[in-house]
Amino acid sequence: MEIAAIVVILIAVFLTAKPAGRYISHVFKGEPVFTDFMRPLEEWIFRFCRVDAHHEVSWSRNAAALLKLNLLFFAWGFILLLIQGYIPFLNPDGKGAMEPSLAFHTVISFVTNTNQQHYSGEVDLSHFSQIVVIGFLQFVSAATGIAAYALFLVGLKKRGSHETGNFYWFFVRSITRILLPLSLVISIFLVVLGTPNNYTGAKSFITLEGDSASVSLGPVATVTSIKQVGTNGGGYYGTNSAHPFENPNFITNAVENFAILFLPVALVFTFGFFLNEKKLTRSFILIMSAVFLSFTALTVISETGGSFNLEGKEVRFGPALSAFWGVSTTATSNGSVNSMLDSQQPLSQAVYLADMMINAIYGGVGVGMINFMMYVILSAFIAGLMVGRTPELMGKKIESKEIKIAVLTVLIHPVLILGGTAISSHFAPGVGEGVSFHEFTRMLYEFTSAAANNGSGLEGLADNNGFWNISTGIVMFLGRFIPIIGPLAITGSFASKNIVPGTEGTLDTSGFAFGLVIVGVMIIVSALSFFPVLAIGPLAIFTGH
C-alpha cells in the first residue's frame, strides 16, 4: 500500500509537472495565460510600490533590487516578532515577544526560504505572526527564488545585451500567477481533508486518562499549503507534518508530498520550454530523477527492511512513506518532516545529508535549478578541456571569469557546512570532550540543513540559544544569497555574449555522455568535500562503530 502510494505520487508529479513547466514558461515570457485576470492587481502593486517593473535592467541592478527587497523583509519580520505581544489583535492566546536571538534566527530562516525552526509555532507565535510574518515570508522567499531563476533564464537567452529582465516583474508574477493559485488549491484540499483553518484560540479538553490538556488551533491549512508549494517547510506546529492537524491522514500526506515535489520538478521543465532546449532538459530530468529514485530506493529499503524501523514515525503513514517524504523534503530544499528524522536509520540520514550537500536534485524552487546549472557549467568546462573542445553552453562560450564565479558559488556550500560544524564541535554549548558519532551527525546535519536552505533537523541539540541561533542564522544567510548573486553575475556575462555557431569542435552538451559527466562532477565535488565528515558521522554508525 505504501509503495503503491509512492508510485502514484511520482506518476502524478511527472504527469502534471510538464504542463506546469510550460505554463510557467509562458508566465516568464509574458505570454497570454489563464491567470491574466491578475494583471490589474499586479499593476496596482507596481504603482503602489512605485517601482518601474516594465523595463529590463542589468544583472547588477536586478541583484541589488533582490537584496534591498529582502533586507526590507528581514526588518519587517524581525520587528514584528519582537513586538508581537503588543499587537492587540489575532493573538487569542496572549503570546508575548520573541527572544531577540530566536527572532533573528526565525526571520533569517524564513527570508532565506530555509525555515529551520528553533521555536514551536503553537508555543511562540500569535496568529498575527503566523500569517503576517511566517506565511508572508514563505510567499516572498519562494518568489525571490523563482524570480532569480527567471532572471537566470533570460540571461541565458539574450544575445549581445546588458539587460537580463526585471526582478520586480518576475517577483510579483511568481506570487500572483504561480504561488497564490497553487497554494489556494492545496489549502482547499487540506481543509476538505480535515486540516483546521480558523482564528480561534487553543481548545481545552479532558483526555481519556482524565487529565486536562489544550490544543492550539489557527490558520493551519493556509500556512501548510505555502509551506509545501514554495519548498519552505516551516510548520505551523513544532512537530511539522507529523502533527495530526497539520497532516491528518494518508490522503493529506500524499497531497502534501505531491506539493513538495511539484514546483521543483515543473521548474526543470520550464528550462526547456523557455530556452527551447528540450533535449538538454530531458537529460537534466533523467539525471536528477535517476539520483532521486536511487536515494528513494535506498532509504525505503533502509527503513522497511531488517528491523522495520517504526521508531519516531506516525503509524498512519508508515516507514516507507516517511522515508519517501524524507528524500523528497531534503532533495527539494523543503525541510518539512512527517516523522522524526533523528530516529531513522544512519543510512537514511546519510542519504538526507547527501541530498542537501548536492542541493541540486530538483532543489528548492528556482534556486535548485540555478545550483544545478553551476554543475553544468563546471562540467562543460571540464569536459571541454578533457576532450580538447571549446567549452560552450547553448552556444555561449564559457570563459575563465565565469568559471571562477561558478567555483566560488559551488565551494561556498562546503565551506559553510564544514566550517560551521568544525566550530560547533568545539564551541557549541553542552559539547564535551567525547562527541559521539550521533552527536556529530546532529551538528553536521544542522549546518548542512542551514547552508542548503533546507530547514529539517535531527533535533536533540537543544538549539534555541544564542550560539545556534546566530551561527546558523549567518550560515543560512550566506548559503542563500551568495549562490544567487554569483549565478546572476554569470548570466549577466552570458547575456552580453553572442551565439557562436556550432562546429565540429563544439562539445555536445545534450547527449548521454555529457549527462554522465554532470553526474560525475556532482559526485566528485560532493564526495571530495563531504565524504570525510560522513565517514565520522552517519556512516560510522552504519558500519557499527
Binding site: 537584496l67 564565479i405 544567510f477 556575462s493
Partner: peptide, 30 residues
C-alpha cells in the same frame, strides 16, 4: 540592546553580500 545588535548584524550581512555586486561586475566586465 541585544535586538539592536542583532539588527545591525543582519544589516552587516546584507552589506557584505551587496558588496559582491560591484566586485563581480568588475570581474566580468558587465
Amino acid at each position: 540592546m541585544e535586538a539592536l545588535l542583532l539588527m545591525a548584524l543582519g544589516l552587516l550581512l546584507y552589506v557584505m553580500v551587496y558588496g559582491l555586486i560591484p566586485f563581480l561586475s568588475k570581474l566580468l566586465e558587465v
